[in-house]
């Protein structure tokens, strides 16, 4: 498979950062001999920062992370520098890879993402990736509908490239509150047969939400991919289910570790055995089969969940 996806513009190495990169990108720690394939922790040098509306897209040199990285996977970054009072890493969907470079799209949210916003070319980020499970490929020839809210479009440029290259017809709905919170409209326009843009304030495309536009495109689709805030995922999942379509959702649950050791990021999911469990969205997700996610029970402890009885006994 191609080692390049998502990144549509050439990475700008002209300003002399290329050499800097080669010196500063020291894999950390040295991968022990015989270690199994999986995520790596690297010092990633920022090559390029591009403003995309309210977002910033950071392209970094992250050797060792890219091999095997697929759309739907994510990376985590340390924030705040050496004496940071923020002990937890921040998660970002991979928006593209090219050679040893990868990119992420960042929205300024709180102190951690604001710290990332202030970084520039040549700065070094502590990065771990690739993490989580990617979007699964659709059945041969199946038409795909991509539905994204805001920076939820980040993994979709790479996914759309993969899908079109494999001969799948692709349509997309991109939505956000305001025009400056849309991402990759141009890139996805050239990769899709139909692209509908919605904004809640009408500043771009149609006024409304992605779920207002999706019903037009669902009849022509066989599989739906959705990425965005949880209420949007829940609504899109319900629409896809009404049309009997497979729907893959990429969820965004708060994470403490991102690698599966802390049990922070769980949500109730029905297993192949029919039993529901709290699954970790960082290692069992972030992409789940929407039909298996119990959206109504997120934030609750359903009685029939595996291990719920033991909680009642000790409370």
């Amino acid at each position: 498979m191609s080692r390049t996806w998502g990144i549509t513009q050439a990475v700008d190495l002209a300003e002399g950062h290329g050499q800097l990169t080669a010196m500063m990108a020291i894999p950390l720690p040295p991968v022990p001999a015989g270690a199994r394939a999986g995520p790596v922790q690297v010092r990633a040098t920022i090559l390029q920062v591009r403003t995309a509306g309210a977002y910033r897209e950071f392209t970094v040199h992250a050797p060792g992370v890219v091999p095997g990285a697929e759309p739907g996977q994510f990376v985590t970054l340390r924030v705040g520098g050496e004496s940071s009072a923020m002990p937890l890493r921040r998660a970002f969907a991979l928006s593209g890879v090219d050679g040893d470079a990868l990119s992420v799209v960042v929205a300024a949210h709180g102190a951690g993402t604001r710290w990332i916003f202030e970084r520039g070319p040549g700065d070094v980020l502590d990065l771990i990736g690739p993490l989580g499970r990617p979007f699964p490929p659709p059945p041969t020839g199946a038409a795909a509908l991509l539905v994204a809210g805001g920076y939820g479009a980040a993994p979709f440029v790479g996914l759309a490239q993969r899908l079109t290259a494999a001969g799948h017809p692709v349509a997309a709905v991109l939505g956000s509150a305001t025009a400056d919170r849309l991402y990759a409209v141009r890139e996805l326009a050239s990769l899709t047969r139909v692209l509908v843009v919605t904004t809640e304030d009408g500043s771009a495309g149609r006024t409304g939400r992605v779920t207002d536009a999706a019903p037009e495109l669902l009849p022509g689709a066989s599989v739906v991919y959705a990425c965005g805030p949880m209420p949007m995922l829940r609504a899109v999942a319900a629409q896809a289910a009404a049309y009997g379509l497979t729907c893959h959702v990429s969820v965004e649950e708060a994470m403490a570790c991102g690698i599966g050791v802390c049990m922070t990021c769980v949500l109730p999911v029905v297993g192949v055995d029919g039993t529901s469990r709290f699954l970790r969205s960082c290692v069992d997700g972030p992409v789940f089969d929407a039909a298996k996610v119990r959206f109504d029970d997120i934030g609750r402890l359903p009685d029939d969940l595996h291990g719920a009885a033991a909680m009642r006994a000790t409370r």
Partner: peptide, 10 residues
């Protein structure tokens, strides 16, 4: 087996 508590947990 224990399910643990509902989210948010952190």
């Amino acid at each position: 087996a224990r399910s643990g508590r509902p989210t948010p947990r952190m």
